[in-house]
Computed example of a mutant assay.
Amino acid sequence: MSWANIIVLAACALSLYAAWADFRKFTIRNGLVLALAGLFVVHALLVGQWSDLKWDLAFAGLMFVLLLVLYAMGGMGGGDVKLLAVAFLWTGMAAAMPFAVTLAVLTVLHGAAAKLGWVGTAPASDGRLRIPYAPSIAGALVVAMGLRFLA
Rank of each mutant, 00 (worst) to 15 (best):
G38S: 11
G38F: 01
L39K: 07
L39A: 09
F40D: 06
F40Q: 12
F40Y: 15
F40G: 13
V41H: 09
V41Y: 10
V42S: 11
V42H: 03
A44Q: 15
L45E: 14
L45Q: 13
L45C: 14
L46R: 04
L46Q: 12
L46S: 11
V47D: 12
V47T: 15
V47E: 12
G48L: 05
G48F: 04
Q49T: 13
Q49N: 15
D52N: 12
W55H: 12
D56E: 13
L57Y: 05
A58D: 03
F59I: 00
A60L: 10
A60W: 10
G61N: 01
L62R: 03
L62G: 11
M63N: 08
M63P: 07
F64I: 13
V65D: 11
L66N: 08
L67F: 15
L67A: 14
L68G: 06
L68C: 12
Y71A: 14
A72C: 13
A72I: 10
M73N: 11
M73Q: 14
G75R: 02
M76N: 02
G77A: 02
G77W: 01
G78N: 03
G78R: 04
G78Y: 07
G79C: 09
D80C: 03
D80R: 04
V81S: 06
V81P: 02
K82F: 05
K82S: 12
K82H: 10
K82R: 15
K82G: 06
K82V: 07
L83H: 03
L83C: 03
L83P: 04
L84H: 05
A87V: 08
A87N: 01
F88E: 06
F88H: 12
L89M: 03
T91W: 00
T91K: 07
G92H: 02
G92T: 05
M93W: 14
M93P: 01
M93N: 09
A94S: 14
A94Y: 02
A94D: 07
A96K: 02
M97F: 15
P98G: 08
F99T: 06
V101D: 00
V101H: 00
T102P: 06
T102W: 01
L103R: 00
L106V: 09
L106E: 03
L109V: 10
H110V: 13
G111Q: 03
G111S: 04
A112H: 10
A113C: 08
A113G: 05
A113L: 05
A114I: 09
A114D: 11
K115M: 14
L116H: 11
W118N: 07
G120W: 10
T121C: 11
T121I: 07
T121H: 06
A122N: 08
S125H: 13
D126W: 06
D126K: 02
D126Y: 04
G127L: 06
R128V: 04
R130H: 13
R130N: 14
R130F: 00
R130P: 08
P132A: 11
P132D: 04
Y133I: 14
Y133G: 07
S136P: 01
S136W: 01
I137R: 04
I137K: 09
A138C: 07
A138S: 14
G139R: 00
A144F: 01
A144R: 01
M145Y: 06
G146T: 03
G146L: 04
G146C: 00
G146N: 08
R148S: 00
